[in-house]
Design a binder for these strands. Structure first.
Length: 238
DNA sequence: GCGACAG
DNA sequence: ATCTTGTCGC
């Protein structure tokens, strides 16, 4: 039976509680492979409207077939953000909406690529790990810029080239080149996935763009959901 | 105390 | 995250 999760793990009342929740959640993160065969791979992302006084967060979850990488399902949800964007606390801003979208899916992916870091975080709980533990689903962090740590060594220009991202003497992620002349991605385990497997899946999901296909499709879906929001429905117009 | 700082 | 078309370069 899925154990009920403490509300503070999703929507804490203040930053101190949020921090404590991250420490508790981080203790549950598994950075070893604990995933079954992957037939469906997911991608999740959030889209925001700038200068939005409503603080709406548009979440999208897309499900792709493997190895075809075709989008076979998707769901979205809109929620009002409980807290502003604070580096290190991204999960509390985006996870609630993602959970709502996730719940709308008839079938869930076996592995999920999340926009943002996994364990490459000050307390080991980036949004990818946060979502992964809450849903208890294998997840991978795919970030476009570093939060903590610095690349060690020179990164090659060929797709597939990688160097470790080191922080306080610890390797937290792989700085991975996914495309020539494009800035690298920062890949770290989210939950139930090892560092090496995380990189493998990102490369396997490459389709010529900087972002892996699941993440790219999720980005498009989140933007589509945002732009569709508030658009008058023909049958509702009188 | 000062800077850094995913999306 | 978001604002935005064309444009320069591989």
């Amino acid at each position: 039976m899925p154990e009920p999760l403490p509300p503070d793990w999703i929507d804490p009342p203040d930053l101190a509680t949020a921090r404590a929740a991250q420490v508790a959640l981080a203790a549950r993160v598994v950075t070893e492979d604990a995933l079954g065969p992957v037939r469906l791979i997911g991608g999740v992302d959030i889209s925001n409207t700038r200068f939005d006084p409503e603080n709406l967060v548009f979440a999208a979850v897309v499900v792709l077939s493997w190895p075809g990488l075709d989008v076979v399902a998707s769901a979205s949800a809109v929620r009002r953000a409980t807290m502003p964007y604070i580096p290190g606390f991204l999960g509390f801003r985006e996870v609630p909406a993602l959970l709502e979208a996730w719940a709308k899916l008839a079938e869930h992916p076996d592995l999920v690529l999340v926009d943002g870091h996994g364990v490459a975080h000050p307390r080991g709980l980036g949004i990818a790990s946060h979502l992964g533990v809450v849903l208890d689903v294998p997840s991978i962090g795919v970030a476009k810029s570093p939060l903590v740590g610095r690349p060690e060594g020179e990164l090659g220009e060929e797709p597939g080239a990688a160097v470790p991202l080191v922080w306080k003497g610890r390797t937290l992620a792989s700085v991975l080149r996914t495309r020539r002349r494009s800035n690298p991605l920062y890949i770290s385990p989210g939950h139930r996935v090892s560092p090496a497997t995380a990189v493998e899946w990102v490369l396997r999901c490459g389709t010529g763009y900087r972002l892996p296909e699941p993440t790219r499709q999720a980005h498009l879906a989140a933007n589509a959901a945002r732009r569709a929001h508030g658009v008058a429905k023909p049958e509702a117009v009188e």
